[in-house]
């Protein structure tokens, strides 16, 4: 108990430290305004990564399934959202997010029920199928929406930056961070305070026991897979105004989410949260400071964590 609290504090300190160091360094070589923008970019990327990684981690923790379609579902969500907003004048981003999330969740449900279910005894087979599906989805997006990026418009009332102390804060990025935190709290409450959450936790801790006490494991798998897929799809739309929808978005996001999960620990919501913001900062500041080597810098936190804590910062199970 004590040690897990210590670790929590240490990890949060690490996030704050990475952020503060990057911020002050950038502020000193560029300007405070630039540093503010980069910090908010980091936080927004962290928030989006959290939405992606939380679903991945939850699915992995419960089903022992590395869902490699997760990046493709994020991209698909972004495209569907962009499409909804383009096709129906006046539909707000939030409605598009909801619609896209539901559609992607349904697709996830079909994938889980009709394909992954059949391979439940073959975990490598499951991973390969999710990988194959990710290729299919990515190529389908290319066929349907073409090779050019499709922008997702920022909601009009979030376009103007907030001005405080003489600096401008990009409002939409703030909104993304707030939404991610709201989602984190909602997921936490879902897991800790609801019947569904209790069943999920029981399944993550001891699947055989969960089955034995009569938890409908099969329905639970579908529900969790749909939940994870839906959040990924909605996150794609939420990220739209920042990144837009483009071919290759999946390949850009999946490795980041994987690194987050490796860092934070599989099956841990809190781990995904801390890991997301660490990677958000490291990647954003890395890109701003050393654009050539941003990916090499991503290595560092991952290697450190794997070397000293292979199960990840907050993981209870070895991956």
């Amino acid at each position: 108990m004590q040690s897990s609290q210590t670790r929590t504090v240490l990890a949060l300190l690490a996030v704050v430290l990475v952020g503060a160091l990057g911020f002050s360094y950038i502020a000193s070589i560029r300007s405070a305004q630039f540093a503010i923008v980069q910090t908010l970019n980091s936080l927004a990327l962290g928030g989006l990564l959290f939405l992606l990684a939380a679903g991945f981690s939850l699915i992995f923790g419960l089903m022992r399934l590395a869902n490699l379609t997760h990046g493709a579902l994020f991209m698909l969500g972004a495209y569907i959202g962009a499409n909804i907003m383009r096709s129906y004048e006046g539909v707000s981003l939030w409605v598009a997010m909801l619609g896209s999330g539901i559609l992607v969740a349904l697709m996830g449900g079909v994938l889980e029920r009709f394909v992954l279910r059949k391979l439940s005894s073959n975990s490598l087979g499951q991973v390969l199928v999710t990988l194959g599906m990710s290729f299919i989805i990515a190529d389908a997006c290319l066929i349907i929406w073409g090779g050019d990026p499709i922008p997702v418009p920022t909601p009009p009332d979030l376009r103007a930056p907030i001005r405080l102390f003489g600096y401008a804060f990009p409002t939409y990025r703030l909104a993304v961070v707030v939404l991610a935190i709201v989602a984190a709290v909602a997921l936490y409450l879902l897991l800790e305070r609801t019947r569904l959450g209790a069943m999920i936790r029981a399944g993550v801790d001891d699947m055989a026991m969960a089955r034995a006490v009569g938890i409908p494991v099969s329905k639970l798998f579908t529900a969790v897979f749909m939940l994870g897929a839906g959040i990924a799809g909605a996150a794609g739309v939420l990220g739209g105004p920042i990144m837009s929808a483009y071919p290759g978005l999946d390949a850009d996001m999946l490795p980041l989410a994987l690194i987050v999960v490796i860092l934070g620990g599989v099956g841990s919501l809190f781990g995904a949260f801390v890991g997301s913001f660490i990677i958000g900062f490291v990647y954003t500041f890395g890109t701003a400071l050393l654009p050539d080597l941003a990916y090499v810098i991503l290595f560092l936190p991952m290697i450190l964590v794997i070397a000293f804590r292979p199960q990840g910062l907050f993981g209870r199970i070895a991956a």
């Binding site: 992995f60 022992r64 399934l65 590395a66 490699l68 975990s123 490598l124 991973v127 390949a251 999946l254 490795p255 994987l258 690194i259 999960v261 490796i262 599989v266 654009p291 050539d292 080597l293 941003a294 990916y295 090499v296 991503l298 290595f299 991952m302 794997i306 070397a307 292979p310 070895a318 991956a319």
Partner: peptide
């Protein structure tokens, strides 16, 4: 440091990092 799916995820992440380096 891992085996099974953890090994798969780490090898994937490592290779994606190399891929990113080659691009960037």
């Amino acid at each position: 440091r891992a085996s099974g799916l953890g090994f798969l995820m780490i090898t994937l992440a490592l290779s994606q990092v190399l891929w990113g380096v080659a691009f960037r």
